[in-house]
Each structure stands twice: as structure tokens, then as C-alpha cells.
Computed example of a mutant assay.
Amino acid sequence: MQIFHLLRGVTVAYSLRQGEFAARNGMHATDVRALICLLDAERAGADATAGRLGAWLGLNSAGTTAVIDRLERLGLLARVRDERDRRRVLLRVEDRAKELGRASFGPLIDSTVALLRDFDEGERDAVRRFLLGVRDALGDPA
């Protein structure tokens, strides 16, 4: 149970950090989660549409549109036509959002990467398997 409680503490602290980031940048907490989902999709090479974003966030169509509109107004997200299917609109995280995120979360990312350098490959694999297992237990569609 100690590991579970530590994980819960990490998620609470990270959620607070996300909330502070959202407030500082005129966003809702859901907007930050949306950006994270879209950045994860980008890293995975997956197309991000409004429908997929809504599914990832558990939002209906109106809620998803509200999030996209807010992020677009803030200059953090763009709607772009799919080059392969011009009828389809894709969502793209703008460089400004990445810069804001890096400015706020860069030190945390850097210290986490540095911490993991002290782990051997087997230990890193165990951490990876644990986190993937917890994510799967939560029912994350990623």
C-alpha cells in the first residue's frame, strides 16, 4: 500500500502543479489535460481530431468544442485540414503552448530524467511496466 499511497501523492502534487499552470495561463484544468492528450498523440504519430479528444477527455461534443475554442483563442491550438482527407479537421498544438509547458514543467521533466539516469535498465523497465499497468487499471484509452 505504501507504493500506492506514494503514487497518489505524486498525482495530487502533479495535479496541483497543472492547476497552477492553468490559472497562470488563463485556462481550465480540462484545457491542460487536453493539451497533454494532444501532445501525447503527436509524440505517438496519431492524428488528433475533436472526436478523439472528446473520447480521451470523456467529454461530449459541446464540451469538446468549448475546450478547443478556448485553446484556439489563447493561441495554443490550431484546427488544420488533414492533407490526406481535406474533409477532416485535425488539432495541432501550437509552439506557444509547448514553450509555456516547457517553461513551467521543464525543471520537473529535467529532474525526473536525471533521477532515472541513476536507475539501471531493469529498474527503468520495472517503473515503466508499473506505470503502464496503473494506467491500464485506470482505463486510460491511450
Results as ranks from 00 to 15, higher is better:
L16R: 14
R43H: 12
R17Q: 13
P141N: 00
L39S: 10
R117G: 08
G9W: 03
L57Q: 02
R8N: 15
A13P: 02
H5C: 11
A13F: 08
S104F: 12
T112V: 13
L71N: 03
A142F: 15
P107C: 09
E123A: 15
G45C: 07
L108M: 13
S15F: 11
S15Q: 14
A41P: 00
Y14S: 14
V80K: 09
M27C: 05
A126K: 10
R92H: 12
F4T: 12
L108S: 11
G122L: 02
K98C: 07
G101P: 01
G101C: 01
R96W: 08
I68T: 04
R92C: 03
A44L: 13
G51R: 03
A13W: 06
L74M: 08
I109S: 11
F130C: 06
A78W: 05
R33W: 04
G133V: 08
K98V: 07
R73S: 15
H5M: 13
R86W: 10
D82G: 06
V12P: 00
L132H: 11
R52G: 14
L35Y: 00
G9C: 06
A44I: 03
R87A: 15
F105P: 01
R81Q: 15
L57E: 04
G51I: 01
R73M: 08
G122Y: 06
H28N: 13
T11G: 05
L76G: 00
N25Y: 07
L35R: 03
G54C: 05
L138R: 07
D82T: 03
E20I: 11
A142L: 14
L91Q: 01
I3L: 12
L59A: 01
V113F: 09
E83R: 15
